[in-house]
Computed example of a mutant assay.
Amino acid sequence: MTNCPKCKSDNIVKNGNIHNGKQGFLCKKCGRRFVENPSKKIISQETEDVIDRLLRERIPLAGIARAVGVSERWLHNYVNEKYKNIPKKADVKKKSKGRLTPECDELRSFVDNKGNKVLIWLEKDRDTGEIVGVHIGSRDKAGAKGLRDSLPPVYRQCAVCHTDFREAYNSVFPSERHRAVGKETGQTSHIERFNNTLRQRVSRLVRKTLSFSKKIENHIGAIWYFIHHYNASLG
Rank of each mutant, 00 (worst) to 15 (best):
V68A: 04
F165Q: 02
S211P: 06
I131V: 12
R179M: 07
G133S: 10
S39R: 09
E167Y: 10
R204W: 03
G98I: 07
N231D: 12
I227D: 04
K95L: 13
L61I: 13
A144T: 01
R204G: 00
C104R: 04
V79G: 03
R166A: 10
K97I: 09
K28L: 15
A232E: 14
T188D: 03
D149P: 02
H229L: 01
W224A: 00
K124L: 15
T188M: 03
S71H: 06
I86T: 10
A159L: 00
N3T: 12
K141M: 08
I86N: 04
N113T: 11
K124I: 13
E123H: 03
K29W: 03
Q157M: 03
T209E: 05
H190L: 09
D125H: 10
A65W: 06
I223E: 02
V79M: 09
S211A: 15
F173T: 01
S39L: 09
P38C: 12
H19K: 14
F34M: 07
N37D: 15
V70T: 09
N20C: 13
S9L: 06
C4A: 07
K6W: 05
V70D: 02
A222D: 05
V206M: 13
C158I: 00
D140S: 14
S44M: 09
G221A: 09
K95Q: 14
N170Y: 08
R207F: 06
A232Q: 14
F212W: 13
R201A: 00
I42M: 06
V70Y: 04
K141P: 00
H19D: 12
F173D: 01
C7Y: 07
A62N: 14
K215S: 08
N17R: 15
A232R: 14
H135I: 02
E217A: 13
V79P: 04
N11Y: 10
K124F: 06
D91H: 14
A168D: 00
G129H: 04
Q200K: 11
A62Q: 12
D91M: 15
W121A: 04
T47F: 02
D105T: 05
R58K: 15
D149S: 07
V50N: 01
F34G: 03
T163R: 07
D10Q: 12
H228F: 11
K145T: 06
S171Y: 07
T47R: 10
I227P: 04
